[in-house]
């Protein structure tokens, strides 16, 4: 194709998505659109997979059977979400094996939030309430993303995420209404997770160079700052309701804007964790690699079984 023909196709594509039409796997799309999506969807998938690790830490120590089955179901959902997303990335021509290798080698990125530690049970509450809450804000927007398979995966994920956030808030509610020590534990978890949760939405709009193109292509539907503000406005009353305090002295309701004003986010910390210097970056990757290595025998067993069955079918059909 000549350069001019590609330009024309791109123009047609831009118009097509601007008119709210969906793009499906075999449709023509600009290479950069494809690459952006593969990067975004695979990072999203990796985040689901690594996101299981901070919680897995607490499955055996959940305080009751009720909490334990909920946590197990949540972690299983996250594995499922990773799979939906890897599948969506594959429809764009990405190779699953390569994606997994990139995660295991540390080449691929995942959400930095999972590089924070989970030292107490209250962290399970804070993660469900805040981390899943922030993820939901982003994912609800992505249900209307322009790439069909990604949007459909998001619809499925959003349906399941709502349970995650509710179970987290319920944990926080129970702790906040408990003994002074339990309440302190809940407050401590909120203190540690609040700011990293706000960072999940990414850099401010004026520092987010790829956002404009993603918005133009309708991959993103709302800016980082818009989503962050929505999340804050929704979450502050939830904290107040259970008597916990958001750890931000500058947080206050602004009558004029109809939103909460909030303090400065520590972006140095954000970039530092992305660079690999978070508390658990190494631990998470090690755990992921260990799980992958320890699953080797079952992959091998599945292959051996498939081969044996195929051979048997062959034999029985040749006899007949």
């Amino acid at each position: 194709m000549s350069k001019e023909e590609i330009m024309n196709l791109e123009e047609r594509f831009n118009r097509y998505v601007a008119e709210e039409n969906k793009v499906e796997p075999k449709d023509w799309m600009p290479e950069k659109y494809r690459k952006t999506l593969i990067r975004q969807i695979s990072q999203h998938a990796h985040s689901e997979v690594v996101g299981m690790l901070p919680e897995a830490n607490w499955i055996t120590r959940a305080p009751s059977l009720r909490r334990k089955v909920a946590l197990l179901a949540k972690v299983q959902d996250e594995a499922g979400h990773g799979l939906y997303l890897y599948s969506a990335a594959e429809t764009l021509g990405a190779d699953r094996q390569q994606l997994i290798e990139d995660l295991l080698s540390g080449k691929a990125k995942y959400s930095s939030i999972f590089n924070y530690p989970t030292p107490t049970w209250a962290d399970m509450g804070a993660i469900g309430w805040l981390v899943d809450g922030a993820a939901i804000a982003n994912q609800v927007m992505l249900c209307r993303t322009s790439y069909g398979p990604y949007a459909r995966a998001m619809v499925r994920i959003c349906k399941e995420e709502s349970f995650h956030q509710r179970q987290g808030y319920e944990i926080m509610m129970a702790l906040a209404a408990g003994t002074p020590t339990q309440k302190k534990m809940a407050q401590d978890a909120l203190n540690r997770w609040w700011w990293p949760s706000l960072m999940m939405f990414g850099p401010t709009d004026d520092n987010s160079p790829n956002s404009a193109q993603s918005m133009k292509w309708r991959i993103k539907r709302k800016s980082n700052d818009e989503l962050r503000q929505e999340f804050i406005d929704k979450t502050v009353p939830q904290a107040e309701f259970i008597g916990l305090t958001i750890p931000d002295p500058d947080l206050k309701w602004n009558d004029e804007s109809g939103h909460y004003d909030f303090g400065e986010i520590n972006w140095d910390e954000f970039y530092n964790v992305i660079k690999g210097n978070g508390k658990c970056n190494k631990q998470r990757l090690d755990a992921r690699n260990k799980a992958h290595d320890e699953g080797k025998w079952i992959r091998e067993a599945a292959n051996a079984y498939a081969e044996k069955q195929a051979k048997r079918r062959e034999q029985s059909s040749s006899v007949a």
Partner: peptide, 24 residues
């Protein structure tokens, strides 16, 4: 159609599909 998955054979594909796409 609800999605896709990887499996070495049909039987395991069916089991994985059960776990991945019909948990609720």
């Amino acid at each position: 159609h609800v999605g896709s998955l990887h499996a070495p054979d049909a039987e395991i594909a069916l089991k994985n599909a059960r776990d991945v796409y019909t948990r609720r």
